[in-house]
Computed example of a mutant assay.
Amino acid sequence: MGSLAGRIKPAVRYRGVATAYEAADGNGACLYGPAPNLMVAAMNHTDYESAKACGAYVLVRAANGKSITVRIVNECPLPCAPGQLDLSQQAFAKLAKLSVGRLPITWTLLSPALSSPISIRYKVGSSQYWCGIQAIGHRNPLATLEVRTAKGWRKLQRTDYNYFLSPDGSGCGKAIRITDIYGQRLSIDGIAIKPDVAQSTRVQFARH
């Protein structure tokens, strides 16, 4: 279970501190775009792990017994310490008054109930000669994204801005295969190269 996970592993309780930031429309370093709600957070640089934390849902608990679920959409740069979460002001306010400033917390990875399927988006500038691919709205953190090429499946490198790149264009516009940290694998066909358009799929990872 979770053998494909990076630093953030299932069933582990992390300790840290919560701070707050002005999240605006909820977009951030993960480049998902405006968030449907502002229950979002920025993961500290270390646990962000070059975008591996992007899209993860975490349950945050404060010592006062209050808790909230947030989605990771941003990176909190150093000096954000390991374990630290920079919550949107809206999320922080559900745990304590903003004037508290720094709040001791624990947090754990969640696999939440979601009704919507995953979407796929090609980066601006993508073509058959170069492309960046992003998955949006996945229930569990992503471990890998692959594209089908003439030689079989090719694993693409993830960038710290949360796109998987095919520098020579191989596999661009072809079938896509994504794997979550639990080893669940989903194959997706029929996603055309339409830069900056989130195209809905019919699939979603199962809960864990």
Rank of each mutant, 00 (worst) to 15 (best):
M1Q: 12
S3A: 11
A5V: 00
G6C: 02
R7T: 04
P10N: 08
V12H: 00
Y14S: 05
Y14T: 01
A20S: 09
A20Q: 07
Y21T: 01
E22P: 00
A23V: 13
A23C: 04
A24V: 14
G26Y: 02
A29L: 00
C30H: 02
L31P: 03
Y32C: 09
A35I: 12
P36H: 03
P36A: 07
N37Q: 13
N37V: 01
N37S: 10
M39T: 00
A41I: 03
A42C: 02
A42F: 03
N44C: 04
H45Y: 09
D47H: 06
Y48I: 15
E49L: 14
K52D: 10
K52Q: 08
G55N: 12
N64P: 06
N64K: 00
N64V: 02
N64F: 02
K66M: 05
S67N: 15
S67H: 13
I68S: 08
V70W: 13
I72S: 15
N74F: 09
C76G: 10
C76I: 15
P77C: 09
P77D: 15
P77S: 12
P79V: 03
C80Y: 03
Q84L: 09
L85I: 03
L87M: 05
S88Y: 09
Q89C: 00
Q89A: 01
A91M: 01
A93N: 13
K94N: 01
K94R: 13
L98K: 07
L98D: 07
S99W: 04
G101I: 11
G101L: 02
L103P: 11
I105N: 03
W107V: 00
T108V: 15
L109M: 13
S111V: 03
S111F: 00
P112K: 06
P112T: 06
A113K: 09
L114V: 15
L114Y: 02
S116E: 15
S116M: 14
P117Y: 12
S119C: 13
S119A: 08
G125Y: 10
S127R: 11
Q128E: 11
C131R: 15
C131L: 09
I136F: 07
R139A: 02
R139S: 01
N140S: 11
N140E: 03
P141C: 04
L145R: 08
E146P: 01
V147E: 14
V147C: 00
T149P: 03
G152E: 11
G152Y: 11
K155T: 15
K155M: 14
K155N: 13
L156P: 12
R158I: 05
R158L: 13
R158E: 01
Y161F: 04
Y161L: 09
N162Q: 05
Y163L: 04
G169N: 14
G171P: 05
C172H: 11
G173S: 09
G173D: 06
G173H: 07
K174F: 08
A175Y: 08
A175V: 08
I176Q: 10
T179S: 07
T179G: 07
T179R: 12
I181L: 10
G183H: 14
Q184G: 01
L186G: 10
L186Q: 10
S187G: 13
G190T: 02
G190N: 12
G190C: 01
I191P: 07
I191Y: 05
I191S: 02
A192L: 06
A192N: 05
I193K: 06
I193C: 02
K194I: 12
P195I: 06
P195Y: 02
Q199H: 04
Q199N: 10
R202K: 06
R202F: 02
V203T: 13
H208C: 06
